[in-house]
């Protein structure tokens, strides 16, 4: 078996709130292979977003180790950290909150190319146009402001920004949860297309077990900062063993259609 792209071991993060201590990540260990989608699912407060943020180093853990592309990621500082960060990108639920809403699309995509010195000033407009095309948007959108385009278009821009630095892993934190269902499927297809073409791995944080089952290779079900259950996404969700797994699956609304439409 190939080296894991990401290997997390013994990751601990505690938060103290009004006298009580909440362990949001309680000795979490996990790994992701190149080109693989690992889903983190669980009820609110189970630690799924905290674990994603720890891996991204948006918050610092109390203990534990994160190896990314064969390097001790938590030990990196300065320029070495910046260089490695280009390979580990993120897309959040609300691009208007994650990105500057008053920036133009071009500016949002120019930033990573400039900061990581991936293209000279004169090359950048062409690279921005190519990125927009890659995510299914017209290069004509470059001059528009983020708040002027639709929610689905904004999330495509966020994906274009994430792939601008040629990452090997993208953390998708509820990245399709706020989208209309008719747009959601197209964004998931785009992500799968990028994964197949570039061998990008995804850490897919989601509360939606239907989407996890269709989109992810493996799933980890979390409860109170601990792993309750893990394995092949379809095997776990079709036959959950843990109490929380059974409760999560039972709570999913069922749409019992007698005539199944051809999805082709």
């Amino acid at each position: 078996m190939s080296e894991p792209l990401l290997a997390v071991s013994g990751l601990i993060k505690r938060f103290r709130r009004s006298g009580t201590t909440v362990t949001a990540s309680d000795e979490i260990s996990l790994s992701i292979s190149p080109g693989e989608t690992l889903a983190l699912a669980g009820p609110s407060g189970s630690g799924k977003s905290t674990i994603a943020r720890l891996i991204l180093r948006l918050i610092e853990p109390d203990a534990g180790r994160v190896d990314f592309e064969g390097e001790n990621f938590l030990a990196l500082r300065g320029s070495a950290l910046r260089a490695r960060r280009a390979r580990l990108q993120m897309v959040f639920q609300d691009p208007l909150a994650a990105l500057n809403p008053r920036a133009t699309v071009a500016r949002v995509l120019d930033d990573p190319l400039r900061i990581h010195a991936l293209a000279s000033r004169s090359e950048r407009p062409e690279r921005i146009a190519a990125l927009l095309k890659r995510v299914g948007l017209s290069p004509d959108l470059a001059g528009r402001h983020l708040h002027e385009i639709s929610g689905g278009q904004r999330q495509r821009v966020a994906i274009a920004r994430a792939i601008a630095t040629r990452p090997s892993l993208i953390v998708l934190d509820e990245a399709v949860s706020a989208l209309d269902v008719s747009v959601r499927g197209q964004i998931l297809e785009l992500l799968l297309d990028l994964q197949r073409a570039e061998r990008i791995a995804y850490l897919f944080v989601s509360h939606d077990l239907g989407v996890v089952r269709a989109f992810a290779h493996r799933v980890i079900l979390l409860e109170d900062g601990r792993i309750a259950e893990q394995g092949d996404a379809r095997a776990v969700i079709d036959n959950p063993q843990s109490t929380i797994g059974k409760a999560l699956v039972a709570a999913v609304p069922r749409l019992a259609r007698t005539t199944i439409q051809d999805r082709s």
Binding site: V181, V211, R213, A214, R234, D238, V252, R263
Partner: peptide, 11 residues
């Protein structure tokens, strides 16, 4: 467009 527990896997 609904992706339920019985949806065909996308991968």
């Amino acid at each position: 467009a609904h992706i339920g527990l019985d949806a065909a896997p996308m991968i």
